[in-house]
Every structure is written in C-alpha cells, then in structure tokens.
Amino acid sequence: MAGTKKHLSYENTEFSVFSLVLLGVLIWLFPMLDAVFLLLFLVVLASLLFRWRFPLAPEWMLIDCGLLCLVCIRLPEAALLLCLYILFFCTRGRWFLSLPFLVYAMALLQMPKILFVVFSFSLGVLLWLWKQERGMLQEETDRLRLQLHHADQEQLRLLSDYQDAQQLSRLEERDHIAQILHDSLGHELTAAHLSLKAQGTFLRKGELDKAMDSQQKIEMRLQSALEQLKLAVRQLDVAEREAQSRFDQLISAFEYPVEVSCKGDLDTVQPALAQVLYAGLKEALTNISKHAKPTKVTVLLDCTPTYVRLMVENDGILEQAPVHTGNGLRYMRRRVEAMGGSVAIQQDKTFRLIITLIRSQKELT
C-alpha cells in the first residue's frame, strides 16, 4: 500500500509539471492564438495525451516532433510547443533525444522564451532524476522488507527448534525415569507379588509355617523396593538440582566481577524454567562482554513460590549497543514468552535486563 501511494504521488507530480508547462505555453501563445495556432495546439495536446494513455516507446514521439519542426519553418513561434515534447523525453529518461529539438527551439525563439524552453528541459531532467532515486529507494525498501521477513522466519524456525528440543528433552527425561523405576523397582515388586500369591496358597492349605515364611519374604521385598525408590528419587534429585551450580560456574567464568544476590532456592524451580533463565543470563553476560565496559555488574535472582525473576544490570551504558540491533535478545524474548514469561529492558544510568517467569501450579503442588 505504501509503494502504491508513492507511485501515485510521483504520477500526480509529473501531471502537475506537464500542466504547468502547458499553461505557460498557452499564456505565451495567447496573443497570437488564431485558428491555426489553436488547431496546432490541440493536435500537440492530443499527441501527448495519446502517448501518455498508451505507453509506447518514447522514440515514436520523434515522428510528432519532426512534423512540428516542419510546421515551425512557416510558424517559428510554434517552436514554443516543443517544450512539451522536450519535457516528455526528459521525464522518460531520453533527454539526449530532446537536445536537437532544444537547440532548434532556441534558434527560432527569442528571449525570454528561450529561458522557458531551458526551464522545461531542466524540469524534465529533475523529474527523471527524482524518479530514478525513488526507484532505488523503493528497491532498497523492498530488499530490507524481504530481509526482515527472512529474519522473522528464521526466528520462528529457531523457536520451533528450541521447543522441539525441549519436548525431546522431556521425553528423554521420562524415558530415564521409566528406566530407573523399571530397573530398581520392577524386580522387587514382581518378586513380592509372587510371594503374596504363594502366601495365599499356603493359607488355603493350612501351611502356616510356609505362609509366615512367605510373609517375611514379602516384607523384605517391599522394604528393598522402598529403599530402591528412595535411591532413584535421590538420583533424579541430584540430576535436576544442578541449576544453581551451572549459574555459579557461568558467573565465576565471566571476565568482569559480578555481584550476586539470590533469594530462594533455584534448584526448586522447574528444570525447563531454570534452563530459560540460564540461557537469558548467558545472553546478558555475552552482550555485556561485547558491547559494554562496566565497572559493576549485578545479578539478582529472586525465586518465590509464584514466580522466578532474574535481573542483570551493568553500568557500562555509555558503550552499550542499541537494544534493537541484537538477534540474541529477540530470540531470548521469544523463548521467554513461549514459556509464558516476559522480558523487560530498562536503560537509564544503567542497563537492566529483567526476565520474569511464572511457576506452574503443577510444579507448586
């Protein structure tokens, strides 16, 4: 729609310029406007309107100009009508074709009509240059829009890949849990179940000694299964409770000193949320390393029962790159929003990045 409006704006301007030159020619010829001049004026006007309505090659207008030049031999003042053809050639980028007629008109006319012919030529050249510049700007705009479209598509693809990776990670985690439960509990519970059946058989036969012995085996199997379950839970708990150590390692490896303040236990946060926070912290520290020279970097982590918030702040704002230039921040915002969270950027005397994620009710229960 914007390109259409610009196109119409140029066409309207070109029509206005032609109307202006046409009015000037009419004013100059008005004192001598008899039947012959009026007929000639109308023929020239019809010729221009025909060429304007039907986009033929501009070179065909040479025939009309040649006929008008022959008429100018008998009516030299009619050379002023060549202004319209000169303007036509220039606006079509054929200014070199108008040069012979420009010289011819200047040879037949006198001052100040010669200035009007030169003015028409200059005006046509300016219109053509404006059209060329407008075309280049339009091409550049289309190219940038295409790049932006491709960038958006790439972001969507990366976000989709990230979500697929998350889903795969969850499936692998479930498979890992299932394998642990099968290996640790399956054997013991199966043996307890068989012992329970055997105890029922012994009781029906009245073999109480064997039934008591089977009961002891059942209790031993169930006790062992309970211990295996606790061991599996501890293994899973150790595997999941690595978020805080990963955060600490990332901060300790940063090239600038970091002041850390942590409220709550990050290891109690859902692993998927902890991973998003870790990626956000990594992106924030990477941007500080690239674009800032801070004297102080602060990381605040607040884990509450309802939400978890991460704030990364640095005072290297004077050399901070513009916020809109980084793809990393856009990707991070997409990931956070996909998890139902939000990203806020505050830029004043310091640069702050704030990530807020809502903890799910399922996690809290």
Rank of each mutant, 00 (worst) to 15 (best):
residue 49 L to T: 04
residue 49 L to I: 10
residue 50 F to N: 04
residue 51 R to N: 09
residue 51 R to L: 08
residue 52 W to R: 11
residue 54 F to Y: 15
residue 58 P to N: 10
residue 59 E to A: 07
residue 59 E to N: 03
residue 61 M to R: 08
residue 67 L to Q: 10
residue 68 L to H: 04
residue 68 L to Q: 07
residue 71 V to L: 15
residue 76 P to C: 13
residue 77 E to W: 13
residue 78 A to W: 04
residue 79 A to V: 01
residue 80 L to N: 01
residue 80 L to S: 04
residue 82 L to A: 02
residue 83 C to K: 05
residue 84 L to P: 00
residue 84 L to V: 02
residue 86 I to H: 07
residue 86 I to F: 12
residue 89 F to H: 03
residue 90 C to F: 11
residue 93 G to Y: 07
residue 93 G to E: 14
residue 94 R to W: 12
residue 95 W to D: 12
residue 98 S to E: 05
residue 98 S to T: 07
residue 99 L to W: 07
residue 99 L to Q: 08
residue 99 L to V: 13
residue 99 L to N: 03
residue 100 P to M: 11
residue 101 F to D: 05
residue 102 L to T: 08
residue 104 Y to V: 01
residue 107 A to I: 06
residue 108 L to H: 04
residue 112 P to C: 12
residue 115 L to C: 04
residue 116 F to S: 02
residue 118 V to A: 14
residue 120 S to D: 03
residue 122 S to Y: 10
residue 122 S to R: 10
residue 124 G to E: 10
residue 127 L to A: 13
residue 131 K to A: 07
residue 133 E to I: 05
residue 135 G to Y: 04
residue 137 L to Q: 12
residue 138 Q to E: 13
residue 140 E to S: 09
residue 142 D to M: 13
residue 143 R to E: 01
residue 143 R to K: 08
residue 144 L to M: 10
residue 146 L to R: 01
residue 147 Q to L: 06
residue 147 Q to H: 02
residue 151 A to R: 14
residue 151 A to Y: 09
